[in-house]
Design a protein around this nucleic acid. Structure first.
Lengths: 240, 240
DNA sequence: TAGTGGTCTAGACCACTTT
DNA sequence: AAGTGGTCTAGACCACTAT
């Protein structure tokens, strides 16, 4: 795939910081010549980078590396450890539970397992600079992820592991504000109950549902942020 | 734009339900002939519909209307009134405040107004089947939206009005769990304090920041949900 | 085997921005 | 005036799916 080769080449320039924000990107004609392809092929590479928000194109002016703020979408699947490291803070995890349990009827149905089947269950507290910011209570499909219990989740998070072994194709989220249960309060090392942001996340692969996680964050220590830009496509899209 | 004409034609078939899920869509060659365009142009229409998640394409097999579940993205800008109506519930709004106030220093800076400038301020409670589910506390840029105070926000929400008069290009969100202030508690008709999901949303147009809204929802009456699918592009995208 | 989508070419005309 | 991106054409070859 020639257009992908061009894309990868441009990715590297942008990702490495060699081309900072607003740096001009070679024009369609230049790229076509450099890579010995037709202009339509070079154009496709630039167009896809534009769709992904990495570059901004202006008719008559040229193509430029996009300002960072327009790059990220809201609530892409997040990994708490990455986020903490991104803030240059220390992350560590404590595994509270790692076991197999009988699945509740609703969960068994979701995972397409027979009633009474056993599923993997983990509870992990995540710390940012020594302070508990999330307790992750997760159930995992043993058919799709047989080796889940053998992992060392102080070294890498369940999310990282699941992304490696299964290509996620879908996810759903539910966010609500709750008071923590007594058990959650202990896991979060909260002296007093306080409002918590609770995210339930389910992920799917092509073969079925992989995992359900309930992530509980103390309201005083955690905030979920996001930024989005609207591109032409989203604007034309009917609401349905 | 010929490709857009084809897209609009296909939108109508899908949106109206004339073509249900999995219904076959005309092939590139058929569309090219029907609309008297080259295959590349017909292809572009189908490709964009595919990028938007409205159709699914399989090499060798054809193009088909996508199953509904793969259509919606997470946390697109939401309108509380639409959501309530979508659930077939009754919505009504009570305007608690509609005034101009001196902007706080931070807000004035964000809106690129001089310190001490006045901004529009509205507080509106939204009800679902007679129960308060959101209090919307909003500040609006008077330069970009001069007629804000003249609107009747029991008839249409500020969000609807702002979308009409300004083409939004960007938005940021912050979500947290909090206890409501006494004033919020009154506006939400809460007998007792309870955890609330609070969303701060800022929106921009090309000329600058339009509005800041703080949306507070009682945890017991509101849950934020979302669904997302991962397409090829997102998977190839480097994390940055 | 016929039809489909995926990729690619080598041109073309246009509207727009920059110089 | 020169260069840019936006659109479009009329071909082509390939890998894949359905029959």
């Amino acid at each position: 795939m020639k257009y992908d080769h061009i894309k990868q080449s441009l990715y590297r320039k942008i990702e490495s910081g060699e081309w900072p924000e607003h740096h001009p990107v070679s024009s369609e004609n230049k790229l076509a010549e450099e890579f010995s392809v037709s202009r339509m092929t070079a154009r496709r590479a630039l167009q896809e980078l534009s769709d992904e928000g990495l570059v901004v194109r202006t008719r008559g002016a040229g193509t430029f590396v996009a300002p960072l703020k327009s790059q990220s979408a809201l609530l892409t699947i997040r990994n708490i450890a990455d986020e903490i490291r991104l803030r240059k803070h220390r992350h560590h995890a404590v595994v509270q539970l790692l076991e197999d349990v009988v699945a509740e009827p609703g969960l068994a149905t979701l995972l397409q397992l027979p009633q009474g089947a056993r599923v993997w269950h983990s509870v992990i507290t995540h710390f940012e600079n020594g302070q508990a910011v999330q307790v992750e209570d997760r159930y995992v499909n043993p058919v799709l992820v047989p080796d889940y219990l053998k992992q060392d989740f102080t070294a890498h998070t369940p999310h990282e592991y699941l992304c490696e072994v299964t290509p996620l194709t879908e996810a759903s989220h539910q966010i609500e504000a709750v008071l923590p249960s007594k058990q959650q309060q202990i896991w979060l090392e909260l002296a007093m109950p306080e409002p918590c942001l609770q995210i339930q996340r389910r992920t799917w692969t092509r073969e079925g549902m992989v995992s359900q996680a309930v992530l509980t964050h103390p309201g005083s220590r955690f905030r979920l942020g996001g930024h989005m830009t609207f591109n032409k496509k989203q604007q034309n899209k009917p609401s349905l």
